[in-house]
Design a protein around this nucleic acid. Sequence first.
DNA 1: CGAGTGATTGACTGGTGTCAAACCCTGTGG
DNA 2: CCACAGGGTTTGACACCAGTCAATCACTCG
Lengths: 241, 241
Amino acid sequence: MDVDKIVINKLKEHSRLSADDITEIRNFNFAPRELADQEDLIRQGDEPDKSVVVMSGWVARYHLLPGGSRQYLSFHMAGDWPDAQALFLDRMDHAVCAIGEALVAGIAHKEMTRAISRRPALGFAIWRETLIDAAIFREAITNNSARRKPARMAHLFCELFYRARALGHVRDGQLQLPVSLIQLGETLGMSIATVNRTLLELRASRAADFRSGTLSVHNWSRLCALGEFDPGYLHLKKQPR
Amino acid sequence: MDVDKIVINKLKEHSRLSADDITEIRNFNFAPRELADQEDLIRQGDEPDKSVVVMSGWVARYHLLPGGSRQYLSFHMAGDWPDAQALFLDRMDHAVCAIGEALVAGIAHKEMTRAISRRPALGFAIWRETLIDAAIFREAITNNSARRKPARMAHLFCELFYRARALGHVRDGQLQLPVSLIQLGETLGMSIATVNRTLLELRASRAADFRSGTLSVHNWSRLCALGEFDPGYLHLKKQPR
DNA sequence: CGAGTGATTGACTGGTGTCAAACCCTGTGG
DNA sequence: CCACAGGGTTTGACACCAGTCAATCACTCG
């Protein structure tokens, strides 16, 4: 699929676009870039001059911690616009890396601001995209602070699965998600030992099964119940399924 | 101080505004509203039609949890624009309440979008404001997930103190912050017992002292070290002190 | 002066991090 | 084809942090 199609579909998930807005997107010069597994797209402290759209694979945001370990902040799949927000921040306060091999497409910030000045509605759509990101961050605060470990993991799986389904990345109740247990731990704020034990627990509950980079959801409603998942915060117009 | 002055000063913290942008802000119709301690400004599920600026006191965002308890997400003081982001989200995924008595001023969303369509640069400034909010959320994820309890609390105090100082709310190394220990716990993801013990620890370290609604910072650099605080993520142009 | 809320402290217990060892799988090189 | 190395995963032992519960204290308000 073309980049502009991906972008347009994504924005349409939550915003209305006029024909002119769409033309404006079609005129963007997207610069593709291939990323190897774990390769950094941009680092903490960098001064970004472009935004990227994920075309295939996964990309993750993370904070680098004093000890050298990481705190993963969010995951982004094909269709997502992981750092639209870098548009107006001079210096990156976090890094973005590829999770597995990924393909992204960059748009120069200058080009974006010009387009937005011409067509405010397009800006509003992209703005909304960044606001949904913020809502996801808020939910992550709650998830990692207030929920017990099994609920925490279930919630993360719910969110990723739900978002992936909305973008059409789920096949046969399965989602490719090439993260290691270490990375899961650095996302959910638990040690690798606990990650593993919690994973076994989820498996035993027959709600979901994550192993070797594949998330299989066996019982969606049970998983939602376990994770206290309510998709409202994702602000998607059409609810999948 | 007038509302428009407060707003203009705040946006100038991180953005450049032209004379026309400032005129546009001056023309906003701000509707003042007084809030009692703990009063909800807006609830989870509401459909907002206006944004508010805090004029005095504090306001906090929180998620309501299944059990009825809360997860506080962020705190906002005079000058902050806590839900500029509600502008493009149909339904609130979180609530906002007053922490102590507070005074806020609301602007209708319609009025804001019109002004932004006229003056994109003003929109960019407000957008940036929401992006800084998102950066604060990201830091909260890391804080509550990756840092040990004492560092966690120290970091929160650092952030609030730093932001308050930038807005001129700090007097004699003291900041009025009328939160209870329960609320601190519901912010940092710890039980009230641990909050209290951690508070004693901070007090003993002679870095900071929080009691009866007043945060006193005795040794700023030590507090920063304890909390691994690096203010970069706040994206403020002028660093205070 | 009593009621109520919040703060403080102690005892107890369970969850979770740390450490260590074993295991599995994959790719590499002999 | 096997041996080996290395990364990721699985499991167990153990200590301790931190949550829960309960009692007491401090303070404010009616």
